[in-house]
Write a protein that binds this DNA or RNA. Structure first.
Lengths: 385, 385
DNA sequence: AGTAGCGGTGGAAGCGATTCCACAGGTGCG
DNA sequence: CGCACCTGTGGAATCGCTTCCACCGCTACT
């Protein structure tokens, strides 16, 4: 096959200079209509395909954003990622995604990103980054934004996990619960962020505020994931005096708790209230009360911010905090409440009748079990953050 | 700030040639230990950062794979994607991901991928691609692999959706169901693939094989998503003579069906059996009987195949078909079965006791409701594909 | 001793655009 | 008429690396 044609050959064939061809290619500059048409014709005639690399090198920018995410398949992570990607796409950036599952992987990729002309900016989602790596990135002058992870001085979009933990726990306390368990992945985060830790701190702080003693035997931590959480919850529920409520550090883990309750025949919410965190899609499907954080929005905001940094703008404040809301659904109730004594959660305006039925007659039939597939818009109380 | 240092300055400072620096950088060729050490020292001393673009251009390859996915956040899609990315990462490729939500977006990106030095290969997941785009990619000589989508002549990893639809329907027929509904997104695929269509065909073929008349009033299609499926299923269940079973074209949609049943007080599986498709994580959590396809494996196989193509190897056969399995869980039973008359699904060896209890005593308590949080490994019958 | 071969190295020739500078030719205005 | 300016254009310089070829000493055969 003939050596592939480059811009010079196009120029020659069209009887113009390379500069003109380049201008046609980039649509931008002033080229007369006739010249443009001629060049375009030659381009298709020769089957010319411009070199992305050469253009990028010459331009001095790859027009690419690198995104580092741990555990891509986790619902909360992928939603943030998708949000960010939408923005980058709209801004004309390619996004190269690094899904890291180990710290070695994370460090290797982070290090590779300090190369010149690698990425115009780096977005890190839900992963903590060691100082040295931050310094390396900073030293290389590469714009960096983090979402859902803390690092002093770094541009970031975060939610207040401690406040979230406090809200969730307070919700349970307000319902009258006193023995409240915690299921999380503190100490098992892997490459993931440390948010469970802060949610646990919020839990403790809420207990403290309510004058309830902290009972460390009600706190269980293990690897992330519904299955692991299920085992942990089972341990909790099998205790002589089990908790009447559980706060799980993520919806995924809360789903595991629901599973354990179901398997052990513990009625939710009548014998056990469960609160999750994140408000992933499944939470609505399962009728799970949870603390909602704006996942997709965190992605778009982080991406917007990174784009601004890449353009050289200064963004303030460095640390943007997103609001939290409690979404009350069917997995929480007063301790030992009788089924009819309460509302199962909020009612979507458009659905009042069926929801109502579900919360009353319907409820009686499934006395004491997880109203597993309840769906509700949920009452949203803005968090006092 | 001083102009950033390039390979030439490093070479000069180290008293060597640029070739030698390059060799040190790429670790590959033969450089004496002393020279290497000297060069390395100079590199850190000057804070030299090699240019990714220049290297790629010179090399003639960006070492990048482009992945096009529709609806990134769908569980089945993200699992395939993650599987593929693992392979590309291990092979040293960057992956640039295009999440497309409209055909315009898809076509725009696909077209941009025909540029030279854009991507060494293209992987398309769960999205159909028009002939013209395939031709353009082919004409540009860019290796292409598709996962979960058909296109004549294109290297692809697929599962037999029609067979899957047949298996799912046969499972219900074998249990004794005769009025079997179908919930899918045929005609509402957007940028997504057409697999629901084939699953519907399989459904019809199974009915046909069993001598059951096809009743089009039992077939409902709408946009993908649990919520939409819930509304469709509600319509189905409110009919004067509702179906005794429903086959949903995806687990997500099946979850919607479960939600509708729950809301209408229709007991699953006693009054309604439900079968999904894909075996996403949530299926196990919800005790959903489903047709499993190896999602992650489809990703890794597709990626392996693309890597081979990029290396210039010939891969045969062009179309690789993956096996399907039925996973029987708690959402299916004989029509109008009494609660105690059946096993709720398979029992994990390590869990026999609690599962058993759940399937018996436990079950009685929640008589007739969705065993929503059942978890089971599931009986796996290899599909006769 | 001559020569083949090899480890180690220098450096020029690409790779293929973008972009800036220079310049031609036309137009408008004083 | 002459000058300033504007549009459209050609083309050299530039981006920073990889790679190939040539070459230098040596060692190890024949």
């Amino acid at each position: 096959m003939a050596r592939s044609v480059n811009i010079g050959e196009v120029a020659r064939a069209a009887g113009v200079g390379t500069g003109t061809v380049s201008r046609v290619l980039n649509g931008s500059a002033s080229v007369s209509a006739t010249t443009r048409a001629r060049v375009l014709a030659v381009i298709t005639a020769l089957g010319y395909r411009p070199s992305h690399l050469a253009a990028s090198l010459s331009r001095g920018s790859p027009r690419t954003i690198a995104i580092v995410v741990p555990y891509l398949t986790r619902p909360s992570v992928v939603v943030r990622l998708a949000g960010a990607m939408t923005v980058f796409d709209a801004e004309g950036y390619d996004t190269v995604v690094f899904n890291v599952e180990t710290v070695e992987q994370r460090d290797r990729h982070l290090e590779s990103l300090t190369a010149r002309h690698r990425a115009d900016g780096v977005l890190i989602v839900s992963a903590p980054v060691p100082r040295t790596q931050l310094a390396a990135l900073g030293g290389a002058g590469i714009p960096l934004v983090m979402i859902d992870s803390e690092a002093p001085g770094v541009n970031r979009i975060v939610a207040d996990d401690a406040a979230g933990g406090r809200i969730a726990t307070s919700l349970l306390l307000d319902l009258g619960h006193r023995r409240i368990g915690f299921i999380g992945d503190v100490g098992h985060e892997g490459v993931g962020n440390r948010s469970a830790r802060n949610r646990l701190a919020g839990y403790r702080s809420a207990l403290d505020g309510a004058g309830v003693d902290y009972d460390r035997s009600l706190v269980r931590n293990g690897p992330h994931g519904a299955h692991s959480a299920e085992l942990l919850a089972e341990g909790l529920l099998r205790r002589p005096s089990p908790p009447s409520a559980v706060f799980a550090a993520s919806d995924t883990q809360a789903i595991g708790v629901l599973g354990a309750a179901d398997r052990l025949g513990v009625a939710v919410p009548d014998e056990l209230s469960v609160v999750g965190y994140d408000d992933i899609d499944a939470a609505a499907l399962l009728g799970l009360t949870t603390v909602r954080q704006p996942l997709e929005r965190s992605g778009t905001l982080g991406a917007d911010r990174l784009c601004a940094l890449v353009r050289g703008e200064v963004v303030r404040p460095v640390r943007q905090r997103l609001p939290l809301e409690v979404v009350t659904r069917a997995s929480t109730a007063r301790p030992h409440a009788r089924p009819h004594a309460r509302r199962a959660g909020a009612v979507l305006a458009t659905r009042t009748s069926s929801q109502e039925r579900r919360a009353r007659g319907g409820r009686a039939a499934i006395a004491g079990t997880v109203p597993a597939l309840a769906r509700s818009g949920g009452d949203s109380h803005l968090a006092p953050t």
